[in-house]
Simulated assay, not measured.
Amino acid sequence: MTYRLPAITLTILLFAVGCKTAKLSTGKLPATATITEEGFLNCFTAGTSLNGQPVWCEASAVLYNGKNVFFANDKDMPGGQSPVFMKAPETLADSTKPPTYLTAAPFSQGTKYEDFAQTPDRRFVLLTTAFDRVKPGGHDWDRFNTILYWRSGDEQHPHVLAPDDTSRTSIAYRQQIAQLLATEEFPGAIPYFKIEGLAATDKQLLFGIREEGKSYESFTYRAKIISVSYSVEKAGEADRIRLANDWKIVNNFDIASADPSLPKPLAISSLEYDPHRGCFWMLTSMEANGQLDAYLWVITPSDLYANKPFSLVRNEEGQPLHTPGHKAEDLTPLDHNRLLLISDDDRARTTIGAQVRQPNQAAYTILTIK
């Protein structure tokens, strides 16, 4: 496999043609993919600190909207900055071009962002947190339970996805998800779960559940996908997304059974609908004993909703395509043939060629689909 360091070749992204249809298709799935570019993104100025501690860029979400590339850091940022930011695609590897921070209050009020999604018609962008913390009897951790959305091009006016128009978080949906994930061990409602995937079709939002169990210290890794229908309605001058009450588990993918040769433990870290190809992409990642890695999977909409297994994407040599040394946590289609992956390598000093990651950087990868 050939790895090529970036030479700011991403200007071609500006000419990516967006798909305007919202209709799901079941076209032929891609056969292979190749890593064609890697680099480090500068998320903020070197030496940035918060409460006297260095801030690390633990980028966990990425979205290309046809004009800009949006990123989200799953850690809080100092005042005046934001965990959500964007860059022009041709400046991803250019350390002299700082990001534009999205400083509207809702962006800083949410904590631990995990995944972006975009409706197939590119009308709306959504961003979810992990939903992995809640404080019984208090509201201090409600901010970990937040889904934001905004009209494409109007990222300065994000809304909180909630049953009403005044809530500052999406905590109202937490119990519905917990009840859906109930098991024999945890009847009624599961105490703990973690969301790391978000995808949007023209009618539904789909969430990827990475962890579920008793607590953040006692859980099982998963690649479970749940869905809920949504609609758009007018609320004064604004368009508001409303969720139905039809939450369901649509796919419970067993990674180990699909390919026992893969390392363990792998779990879902991203889910994305690709309107260019009419398929869903999934990343499964791992962080164990100092090992960081991620694998790419693909599935048709009909197979996903029928609870059939995802297909592992391979390289041209027939080996599983993966990102050794990097925990890829989200992906976004750039055009019909390329995907952009962003990695959350936590605080590891990972490398690309001779480059060593600095605290203010995150690794990105571009895949070319064959």
Rank of each mutant, 00 (worst) to 15 (best):
337 N>T: 15
196 E>I: 06
25 S>R: 13
36 T>E: 10
360 N>I: 02
316 E>P: 00
194 K>F: 05
55 V>P: 00
264 K>N: 09
166 T>S: 13
293 D>N: 15
332 T>R: 14
292 L>M: 10
83 P>F: 00
225 I>F: 04
85 F>E: 01
268 I>K: 05
233 E>F: 05
285 S>A: 15
29 L>H: 04
333 P>Y: 03
155 E>C: 06
130 A>T: 12
178 A>Y: 05
225 I>H: 04
243 L>C: 02
33 A>E: 02
290 G>D: 06
328 A>V: 01
360 N>C: 14
149 Y>G: 00
5 L>S: 06
81 Q>P: 00
141 W>P: 00
363 A>H: 15
271 L>Q: 07
31 A>P: 00
46 A>F: 11
10 L>Y: 07
284 T>A: 15
219 F>D: 08
23 K>H: 12
86 M>G: 01
319 Q>I: 05
254 D>T: 09
339 L>I: 09
235 A>D: 15
64 Y>V: 02
56 W>Y: 15
152 S>R: 15
222 R>F: 01
303 D>F: 05
41 L>I: 14
169 T>I: 11
228 V>S: 04
106 P>W: 04
115 D>K: 11
257 S>G: 09
108 S>H: 03
14 L>P: 00
32 T>I: 10
358 Q>K: 15
207 F>Y: 12
265 P>H: 06
20 K>F: 05
121 D>S: 13
162 A>G: 05
79 G>K: 10
223 A>Q: 11
280 F>V: 11
191 P>T: 03
330 D>F: 01
20 K>C: 05
124 F>H: 10
200 A>V: 04
163 P>A: 09
311 S>Y: 09
166 T>K: 14
106 P>T: 11
86 M>Y: 08
270 S>A: 15
348 A>V: 14
54 P>F: 09
299 I>G: 01
2 T>W: 00
306 A>F: 07
1 M>E: 09
88 A>M: 05
146 T>N: 03
231 S>K: 13
254 D>Y: 05
98 P>M: 02
74 D>G: 08
220 T>L: 13
28 K>C: 02
270 S>Q: 07
191 P>C: 06
12 I>V: 12
310 F>K: 03
37 E>H: 10
329 E>V: 06
129 T>H: 09
201 T>K: 10
4 R>K: 13
252 N>D: 15
21 T>E: 14
114 E>L: 08
292 L>R: 12
30 P>L: 07
166 T>D: 08
344 D>C: 13
26 T>Q: 11
245 N>W: 00
41 L>G: 07
170 S>Y: 06
315 N>D: 15
191 P>L: 03
276 H>T: 08
138 G>L: 05
